[in-house]
Design a protein around this nucleic acid. Structure first.
Length: 581
RNA sequence: GCGCUCUUAGCUCAGCAGGAUAGAGCAACAGCCUUCUAAGCUGUGGGUCGGGCGUUCGAAUCGCCCAGAGCGCGCCA
């Protein structure tokens, strides 16, 4: 089942190219850049002309002549230097749209080679408050996980908690310093724990002894010291509770809550493998693995530090082994900001040297940092980073102002209003992030996260809510949906936009790029809004036209909802509005 | 010093396996609610695509050079 208009044209073009003895790798169309001239364009004649040293218009004309014989084209022309412009018959588009509406997957296909993919995103740390810097990784990871599942892959998401490094020793030693021992640890809540960590951080920056002490305790913790281990478990559990609460708000989900600590045993194995293979060596008391010389500065990877503690890079390497052996990963994808690119280059190279995951595709998707107005990684005015909780609350406050008070609208009590507030606020935050391409960083404008007009999550939710409303009313009036008829230009434009959905999802999947879906979803909502304003549904001229338009609207609604789902955004049934204004 | 990522409208960003008139959103201005939710729609203005050179019939897109920004470079994670 392939409901993509482009593919039907492409296969026809392929036949024609072969018949004309042209290289069929150029036999494809794209959505036209000139909507005034065509629906689709093929630039193959231009590319071929260069290779064959022939006149592009001649080649184009020959292709166009063959294409004329197909039954789905309304008009074909060769324009400019040799663009082939193709305009489709309305019936053909309408038929395709009907088929999409009948399809359980709304015209979207699945991947050709389904496999097991592990997604590593989030990466929160024990005892650290989650801040806006954690937003991107979680939001992008969640969306990619939904896209990957939707196209048919077997997906496992791992939060990969930072729970095993020197910070653990830092906070334990800080508590001992202040309390004299660890007796009170089990009573501390997350607020107290993060406060200890903050103080430990400051102390270790200034005081060499404190740092040394922290390192010593880290090594003992990792060595299995009972007392430290018990205290650490409490810190870890409390942190996980707080982190889960944060992620739950954002609807960011994980299958596994593994941490660096879970790789501890495997770390020991890796050290042995490295020694046995003669890859590691001792340097200044530490065990290191040297990497191939290149024009880049590639420092060696320290697997065991001179104090006996495992380096953090080793835990990442060991985790890859676990994921390959126990989870049978075919592909592992990391989502972190670009500051870690060298780190991943290093560990991927080490993994290859060790031969511990030979058939696993390792990928680091790096994204730009969330920046402030000064272009540097975002900080609040007082120099701190804004925590995630505050950001979400600010957006919710703004949403609340635009909603009625509880019980002002029948059936909408405090619970319902709160849920709606949550859905809209989270949509605003997530879409604000996901509409940006992953690779480029973006400037964090606080105001934008509470903006609901224009290219925003709520704009799309609003489009869905309006369609829901029309469909409810149509249903109440006994109106059905029926065969799609395309007459008005707005109907035609909407149908053509809908037909792109498969390609959009596949591109987002192969590029691991949710912004492709975000971009499409916004433009689909736009095209729909234009249709909505120009083409009345319930009061259409004939019942057939009304049925057709209702069906277009329903399909649009379903696709918008699916796209929002793939972005990790909910679509409320109704968008309420406050009375004033 | 070396490397990575980047520089497109007043602002925030798309576009980049080379192609026709470089697109959105915000902001500005002018219109549209007795008809399906105005969180909407329609229209207007706004650009030497950081600069230069090169490859090409054709460059925002590819290559080289320069300038500017951010980040990274063995015992923090």
């Amino acid at each position: 089942m392939n409901l993509l208009l482009e593919n039907k044209i492409n296969s026809e073009l392929c036949n024609i190219f072969q018949k004309l003895e042209l290289d069929d790798k150029f036999a494809f169309v794209k959505v036209s850049d000139r909507a005034d001239l065509s629906d689709f364009q093929c630039n193959g004649a231009l590319a071929l002309a260069k290779i064959m040293h022939k006149n592009p218009r001649e080649i184009g004309t020959a292709i166009a002549a063959e294409l004329e014989k197909c039954d789905f084209c309304e008009s074909i022309s060769v324009d400019g230097p040799g663009f082939i412009n193709i305009k489709l018959k309305n019936d053909f588009i309408a038929q395709n749209t009907d088929a999409m509406a009948d399809d359980a997957r709304l015209g979207c296909g699945i991947t050709e080679n389904p496999h097991k993919v592990i997604l590593d995103y989030g990466g929160p740390n024990v005892a650290k408050t989650m801040h806006v810097g954690h937003l991107r990784s979680g939001v992008i990871g969640e969306s990619v996980s939904r896209i990957e599942r939707f196209v048919g892959n077997d997906v496992t998401c791992d939060v990969h908690l930072g729970d095993w490094g020197t910070p653990m020793g830092m906070i334990l030693s800080e508590i001992i310093l202040q309390d004299g021992n660890l007796d009170k640890v089990s009573s501390y809540d997350i607020a107290q724990i993060t406060e200890f960590y903050k103080q430990a951080n400051i102390r270790c920056k200034e005081d060499d002894n404190a740092r040394e002490n922290a390192r010593r305790i880290t090594a003992k913790l990792q060595g299995g010291d009972e007392q430290y281990r018990r205290a650490w478990e409490h810190l870890r559990n409390e942190s996980i509770k707080a982190i889960k609460a944060n992620y739950e708000q954002l609807d960011v989900n994980f299958d596994l809550w593994w941490g660096e600590s879970d790789a501890h045993e495997a770390c020991g194995e890796i050290v042995k493998i490295a020694q046995a293979k003669g890859i590691s060596e001792v340097d200044a008391g530490a065990q290191i693995i040297r990497l191939a010389e290149s024009n880049k500065p590639k420092p060696p990877v320290i697997i065991v530090k001179s104090d006996g503690a495992f380096g953090y890079q080793l835990t990442d390497i060991a985790t890859i082994k676990l994921r390959a052996d126990d989870l049978h990963a075919d592909e592992i994808v990391y989502f972190t900001d670009n500051r870690q690119s060298l780190h991943f280059e290093q560990i991927f190279e080490v993994v290859q040297k060790l031969g511990i995951a030979p058939d696993v595709k390792l990928q680091h998707i790096m994204f730009g940092t969330v920046n402030g107005a000064d272009g540097k990684p975002f900080k609040t005015r007082d120099g701190g980073v804004m925590d995630l909780e505050t950001l979400i609350e600010m957006s919710k406050d703004k949403v609340r102002q635009s909603l009625p008070k509880p019980d002002e609208v029948e059936g909408y009590g405090a619970d319902e209003i709160n849920k709606l507030t949550q859905q809209i606020a989270v949509a605003a935050i997530k879409f604000q992030d996901l509409k940006n391409t992953i690779a480029s960083g973006y400037v964090f404008e606080l105001d934008d996260f509470a903006k609901f007009e224009g290219k925003t999550g709520p704009y799309i939710q609003y489009a869905v809510a309006r369609i829901n409303s029309v469909l409810r009313k149509a249903d109440a009036n006994g109106l059905q949906t029926g065969k799609i008829i395309l007459e008005a230009p707005e109907e035609r434009a909407l149908a053509l936009k809908l037909a792109q959905v498969h390609n959009v999802v596949m591109r987002a999947h192969t590029d691991k790029e949710p912004s492709i879906i975000a971009e499409y979803t916004h433009s689909l909502a736009q095209v729909f809004s234009t249709f909505y304003n120009a083409c009345p549904m319930m009061s259409a001229a004939t019942p057939e036209l009304a049925f057709s338009r209702l069906k277009l609207a329903k399909l649009t609604r379903d696709i918008l909802k699916l796209m929002l789902y793939l972005l990790g955004i909910e679509a409320p049934e109704i968008m309420l509005k406050a009375e004033n204004k």
